[in-house]
């Protein structure tokens, strides 16, 4: 197990280095002079220009710049935004919001997928299964922004059950509608995965053996069918969590949620290079960490991996 953890963490090192390098390189290759851009219409004094170049290491070769950036990054300095805020502060404000939204959406998605998938799998080909197939296909084929608008229009505006936008109040009570929308957008894949796994597990030999032992169905289904079927579904939901952690840009935009995705979107629109690089770098790190956790979770769920 320890070996597995160590190997998995070591594998993440080249991924982090590779992606940050790529991001840094692409921003570096963007046309335009960042210092000139800071002065807008005015032309800077050559002495000031040079001083700024030195301050931001822009006179150094690309690789040196990258190395210095990585050094700053690992010492916790993510740079500042154009408006003078430290990027770390902006992240500290937006990240918890996204984390909360992702956690709400994934918990709901997981519970829905497991329950509906289990019942569908056990009642394969029956009415419930067929109805859920249709519902799932509709949810899967409708683009997320349509889901957002529909939810906003009916649930929030027409029926008045929730506020149409989130704004500054990011409490659970105020964010449930976007969380439900996100959960529904991910629901079909999880549910169908669960259904397929349940059908497969149920016909496995060890399930028949469990019945042969004299166990009643109310024990075989949770202990042998559900427990074994959870492995791929948990992994799927955890991977989705990783995706949501880096920001559900469209949903956060439509519901005006001050999360990572929305902030990044605004930064890209305004062309704030340093903010974009730092945000994306942190997102990559978050995504890699989540994926390591997913793999560890997999090992916890499946003893064959734990004791390999």
């Amino acid at each position: 197990m320890l070996m597995y953890v160590v190997r998995r963490i070591l594998q993440a090192v080249p991924v982090v280095l590779g992606t940050t390098f790529l991001i840094y390189f692409m921003v570096f290759a963007m046309p335009g002079d960042p210092i000139l851009a800071m002065f807008g219409d005015k032309t800077p004094n050559p002495a000031v220009y040079e001083a700024l170049q030195q301050q931001y290491h822009l006179d150094q070769p690309f690789l040196v710049q990258y190395a210095l950036y990585m050094k700053d990054l690992f010492s916790g300095d993510l740079g500042t935004t154009f408006s003078g805020q430290s990027v770390a502060d902006v992240l500290a404000r937006t990240f918890p919001v996204t984390l909360k939204l992702a956690a709400m959406a994934i918990s709901l998605e997981f519970v829905l997928s497991v329950v509906v998938g289990l019942v569908s799998g056990l009642r394969k080909g029956k009415l419930f299964d067929n109805v859920m197939l249709v519902v799932g296909l509709i949810l899967l084929s409708v683009p997320i922004f349509v889901l957002c608008f529909v939810a906003q229009y009916f649930v929030a505006i027409k029926w008045g059950w929730a506020s149409p936008t989130v704004g500054a109040d990011t409490s659970v009570g105020n964010m449930w509608l976007p969380a439900v929308v996100l959960a529904l957008s991910l629901f079909t894949t999880g549910m169908r995965l669960m259904r397929g796994t349940v059908i497969d597990t149920r016909s496995r030999d060890f399930v028949r053996t469990a019945y042969a032992k004299g166990l009643p169905g109310r024990r075989v289904i949770p202990v042998h069918v559900l427990r074994n079927s959870l492995i791929p579904v948990v992994t799927n939901s955890a991977a989705n969590f990783g995706v949501l952690m880096v920001g559900a840009t469209v949903t956060e935009g439509i519901f005006n949620i001050p999360g990572v995705g929305n902030t990044l979107y605004q930064a890209i629109i305004r062309g704030e290079g340093p903010t974009v690089v730092s945000f994306v770098t942190v997102m990559v790190l978050a995504y890699v960490v989540i994926n390591i956790l997913v793999d560890l979770l997999y090992a916890i769920l499946d003893p064959r991996i734990r004791y390999a």
Binding site: R204, R208, N228, D302
Partner: peptide, 11 residues
């Protein structure tokens, strides 16, 4: 049962 490989629950 017949096949000892598949008749015990691996988890």
């Amino acid at each position: 049962p017949q096949d000892p490989m598949s008749n015990l629950n691996p988890v």
